[in-house]
């Protein structure tokens, strides 16, 4: 019996080698999730909900422009509508793979643009359960990726990829990502803490096709240890609008053009 299994495994080996590797799956997934189109615009409606059901709202316009191929540099621009007292605040990120981001923030109350150090990608994005890393991605090279198994999420066939950080900087011990075999979107992600307990749960709750790009327009991140969760809805999402590079500057951070932020 044992021997039979071994023979079977040896017979399968070449096939395995031909199949997709974990790293390739995650690369494709990152391209599909964070890099579709040359540029991208959406209105982000964010609900921060604590375990007693109390809600806080964040509303912002998010713009993104890719510098080149998927996996390369990106620029983000965010303009806040809500909460009311932060209206007109804007936030800009230059994202580089394998290097710390550059971030700037415009504080309208004192009419000041301030550079913000981005030493901690693990910190919360605008008070939500998403970290900066969850929003703009984590370098593929930072983790080892292995396809553990294949599984359905809803009616979609998925690869289940286990990613384990190579270093110690991550706030998770390991994570599993359910990557849609057809469009490579991550439909589900489970993050485990360093003690091996499940602690964060991501789900793409609704995927819409916009200009040919499958886009998760509803997503949730839930912290299982605090019971806090963040629900995100994208509205007025669009791709390839021809956003100028000059938008991503301190000048426009102070006074962003109407057409891009509305």
């Amino acid at each position: 019996m044992k021997r039979w299994w071994m023979l079977f495994a040896v017979a399968l080996l070449p096939l395995q080698a031909l199949a997709l590797s974990g790293e390739e799956a995650m690369k494709k997934s990152q391209a599909a999730f964070l890099y579709p189109g040359k540029d991208f615009k959406t209105r982000v409606m964010m609900k921060l909900i604590n375990k007693d059901g109390q809600e806080r709202v964040r509303e912002l316009t998010m713009l993104r422009k890719n510098a080149g191929e998927p996996g390369g540099d990106q620029k983000y621009f965010m303009y806040f509508f809500q909460p009311a007292d932060v209206k007109d605040m804007s936030f800009m990120i230059y994202k580089y793979p394998a290097k710390d981001d550059d971030r700037w923030l415009f504080i309208p109350a004192i009419n000041m643009v301030k550079r913000i150090a981005a030493q901690d990608k693990r910190s919360s994005f605008v008070g939500s359960d998403f970290t900066y890393e969850d929003v703009s991605g984590r370098d593929i090279e930072d983790d080892n990726h292995v396809i553990e198994r294949e599984e359905k999420v809803g009616n979609r066939d998925c690869y289940v990829v286990k990613s384990t950080p190579k270093g110690t900087d991550a706030d998770f011990g390991h994570k599993f990502t359910w990557v849609d075999k057809a469009n490579f979107l991550p439909l589900k992600e489970e993050q485990y803490d360093k003690r091996g307990n499940r602690y964060k749960l991501f789900s793409a709750d609704e995927v819409a096709n916009i200009k040919g790009f499958p886009t998760p327009v509803k997503r949730t991140m839930k912290n299982l240890q605090t019971g806090h969760r963040t629900e995100v809805t994208y509205v007025k999402t669009d791709y390839d609008l021809g956003i100028e590079d000059s938008l991503f500057s301190e000048r426009y951070l102070r006074q962003p053009p109407r057409k891009w932020v509305d």
Binding site: R56, L105, A109, I110
Partner: peptide, 29 residues
């Protein structure tokens, strides 16, 4: 500072990078 907006924006800025509990411990949502 002298305005409510400045305070709101400062705290928002703080919450953008700090641990959620830092603010939660001193003000309700």
């Amino acid at each position: 500072p002298d305005t409510k907006e400045a305070i709101g924006q400062y705290l928002f800025l703080f919450s953008m990078s700090a641990k959620p509990s830092d603010l939660d411990n001193v003000v309700d949502s």
